Each structure stands twice: as C-alpha cells, then as structure tokens.
Amino acid sequence: MTIDKPRFYNDRTRRPDNFHKDSPKTPEPYVADKAGELIRAVNLAILLERPLLIEGEAGCGKTCLAKAVAYELGYPFYRWDVQSTAKVRDGLYTYDAVLRLHDVQLGELKMEKPRDPSKSKDYLDYGALGKAFISDRPAVVLIDEIDKADLDFPNDLLGVLDDWKFSIPETKTEIRAKHKPIVIVTSNKEKGNLPAPFLRRCLYFYLEFPKTSEALEKIVEDHYQVKQEIAAHRVETERSTAISPDPELVKEAVEGFLKIREDTSLYKKPGTSEFLDWLKVLQTYLPTPFDANQLKSQIQSSATAPYREVLFKHRSDWLKYRPAQ
C-alpha cells in the first residue's frame, strides 16, 4: 500500500485554504533552479522522512526555502536559530523551575497567580522541534546554521530525529511526534564539516548562487510580484515600496552586481538579500530612480559602486569600491 506524501512544487498558488494558524502568513518569493533539482531534493526528504541539509554561501537563499515549503503546503513553520551555546534540549522544550518556586512562595503568601504550581506543565514551553512534534499536522522546521553549535550538537540531535521522540523528566512524560516534521537544516561550514553520522542521516544539497542574469532577473520579478500581492491588501502609504523598478535599471543592476561578484579579491561576496536591498535603494532613495547608464558606467568603467554600504560588509571590500577622490 502506497502512502500519499505531500509534494513541493515551488508554486505558492497551490496553497490550501485550510492552512495551519502557524503557517507563514505571507508568501515567500522563492525561485528554485530551472532543472528542478532543489524541488526534487525537498520531495525526496519528505518521502524518506529525513532531514535535508542545505549548504551554500551566505545570502544564496538557504533560509527562505523552508518558509516557501511551509507556505505552499499550508503547514506550520517553526524556526530554530542555532547559537554557539545551543543544546538539543533548547529546540525541544524549556522548563522554568525558578518561576514555579516563585509561584509556590506566592501561594504561601496567599497571593493570586496565573499558574498552578501543582501542575508542572504550566511551566513548560516547547521549542521549535517540540512544537512540531505536538502539532496536529506535519510541520516544517528550519534548523538554521547548525554549525554554530559545538561538534556534539548534530550527533545529539540524531537521537531525536531517529526515534522521533523525546522525554521531559520534569513532567515525567515522553513526547512522540504525532506527525514527522519536514526538517530543513542549513550550514555555512563555519566550523568545518559536520560529523559523519549526522551527514549519513541527511539528504544533501549544495545551493549555488544564481550565475546568470536571467536567473537573477527572475528573482527580482518574483520578489516584486509578491510584494505587490501583499501591498494590495494594505494601506496606500505601504504600496509605494512594492512598485517594480525600471526594467532598464534592473538590467544594469543585475549585470553590475554579477560583475562585482566575479571579483575574486572580495572578502565576502554580496548575496541575494544585499542585491534586493541595493536595487530598492537605486530605485527609491532619490526622488527619481538612479540612472541606468550612469550605473553601468560606474561599475564597468570606474569599478565603483553607488550605495556601497548596502553591498559590502567588510572594510577591504567597502574601500575597494569607493568613488574616486
């Protein structure tokens, strides 16, 4: 007997009407590769019920993928931003024993309190994975930048993802996943390779930055189309930011941006987020949009970039593209 699994098509118009209350409220303008390899990787992860590990340079769209999947499927979306001090328990639950003790003391003073110290569950909060486990339908969980934590973290996480359950000693309960979540993990390889046991458990995809002007222009088109859809339901003052940039300006901005990214001496290449911010500034910072021909001349001829503070995040890169004195 074949069990029907949901499929991701990278088509936000397929969103079901009965979407979950924790599903993203606004669409994610995500553009997958033309060959459909990323879409296939997501669907294989759903089919095999394994985490999908996404690697790639900062700003290439790793984080946005999980939100796009959750929006299209109408599933709840829970994000776990991993910190250097993170432990697996942080993503499962937190238990506030100090608050419980405080409430006990208030009870001795016969003061009103919003919680019942005799009920340990009143002091329990679920993390991203914990919420996914108790959800009434499958959830999408983003575990963002897993390599920020210590090397034991991924292997500790394996126990939870292998058994799809965890224990809460404070309440003497065991939580089993009602529905196995779709887990998307991102990594920038900040601390080298992840442990081999964890890698064996995951499906893997390396997300490359768009290399062609057509791909980047498609991202711009989709981005502003979504902004216009959202702005159509908002007040007039918010709609001006959704106006699509001048096509000629977009063309020259894309060409100039890709030329900047070809510079192998850059300490940190700007990503998609920086590009979209830069394009918005070119279009709206002055009363009239930045002149497309002037933009082309600056980048192609004089190797300078207007509004470089938007593009570059390192001193050497910022200094290199400063205007001629």
Rank of each mutant, 00 (worst) to 15 (best):
Q294P: 02
V88M: 02
Y71C: 02
I168M: 01
K25C: 03
L48E: 13
I184D: 01
E190V: 12
L73Q: 01
L53W: 06
K110Y: 11
E72R: 04
D11A: 08
V98N: 08
V235A: 09
P181V: 04
Q283G: 02
Q294C: 10
A35I: 02
E221V: 06
R239C: 06
S120K: 15
L286A: 15
R322V: 12
E28T: 09
M1E: 15
N193D: 14
L295R: 06
K251W: 10
C202V: 07
T2F: 14
Y126E: 01
S84D: 15
E217K: 13
V69M: 08
D277N: 10
T171Q: 03
V220H: 03
P154T: 04
R261W: 07
E274D: 14
E208N: 10
P287I: 04
T63A: 05
F166R: 00
E248C: 08
V235H: 14
K178T: 05
G256E: 08
N155M: 02
A253I: 08
L286E: 13
Q225H: 15
K119Y: 03
G271Q: 05
E55H: 12
E170V: 04
I3K: 15
P138N: 00
R201P: 10
Y93I: 03
L286I: 09
P289I: 03
P195E: 07
A70D: 02
R176T: 09
L47M: 15
I168D: 01
